[in-house]
């Protein structure tokens, strides 16, 4: 039957030499002092849970993952950008209040806002030791004015074009990338089309022509039926 659904590790094959994610996090915290690393569980495929790393220490963490003798994650397979919008959660709280001298229990709804962010996901494997994946995530501070993360291209060349693609389509600024330019959209394009709140233009190829000035003038002279 399908080996993909039943295999204990998603990498399958000879994997299994990887330490557990908790052990890996503890080792990383020891090896890279000051790094902030959280585990993000994955409810659908638990063996593909990921490590969230702060951008300031991401390069050091990546370098450790690549160079440690028993990890040797020498192959960065996939770099993905994800856009998370502001999320709102509603919480119902029961409170006791004093209204006109009497104590009344009131139910109140509090709205929590979790600010949105852009996320970059790296899928790492080891070609030398044939295990993986270890999934690394970096998050920007917000979606608007601080969209910086650390580029991992100095560690894995395979991230070069993929980070350019994430920059192009999501607007993540990769600090330390050797050649951060648009790759799929044209250079003059202004927006980032993979963002969730991107609005398509009506006409991608619109350019102002003399008509743009003349048409309103003509309409003033010859108003259409019912518009004047």
């Amino acid at each position: 039957m399908s080996a993909c659904a039943s295999s204990p590790t998603s990498g399958g094959g000879a994997s299994g030499s990887l330490p557990s994610l908790e052990a890996l996090r503890d080792r990383l915290l020891e090896a890279v002092p000051g790094a902030q690393i959280q585990i993000q569980p994955n409810p659908a495929v638990p063996e593909q849970s990921s490590l969230v790393v702060d951008p300031a220490h991401a390069v050091a963490v990546a370098r450790y993952l690549r160079d440690a003798e028993d990890l040797r994650l020498d192959y960065c397979s996939n770099v993905t950008g994800v856009d998370w919008l502001d999320a709102f959660t509603e919480e119902t709280v029961t409170r006791t209040r004093v209204v006109e001298g009497r104590e009344v229990t009131v139910e109140e709804t509090i709205r929590h806002r979790r600010p949105g962010y852009l996320e970059v996901v790296y899928h790492l494997y080891s070609m030398s030791l044939r295990h993986g994946p270890v999934i690394l995530r970096q998050r920007t501070r917000n979606r608007v004015d601080d969209t910086r993360v650390a580029s991992l291209t100095p560690v894995w060349r395979s991230a070069e074009f993929q980070e350019r693609e994430v920059y192009d389509l999501f607007g993540v600024q990769f600090e330390g990338h050797p050649d951060l330019r648009r790759i799929l959209m044209w250079d003059e394009f202004a927006d980032h089309p993979m963002r969730k709140d991107y609005v398509e233009p009506d006409d991608y190829e619109y350019e102002p022509t003399p008509n743009a000035e003349i048409l309103p003038k003509a309409r003033r002279h010859y108003p259409l039926e019912g518009t004047a």
């Binding site: 039957m1 399908s2 993909c4 659904a5 039943s6 998603s10 659908a44 495929v45």
Partner: peptide, 14 residues
């Protein structure tokens, strides 16, 4: 998708 949803594939289909 099969990995995401935990689906199995019949022998002949494999």
């Amino acid at each position: 998708v099969e990995k995401l949803a935990g689906l199995k594939v019949p022998e002949r289909a494999e």
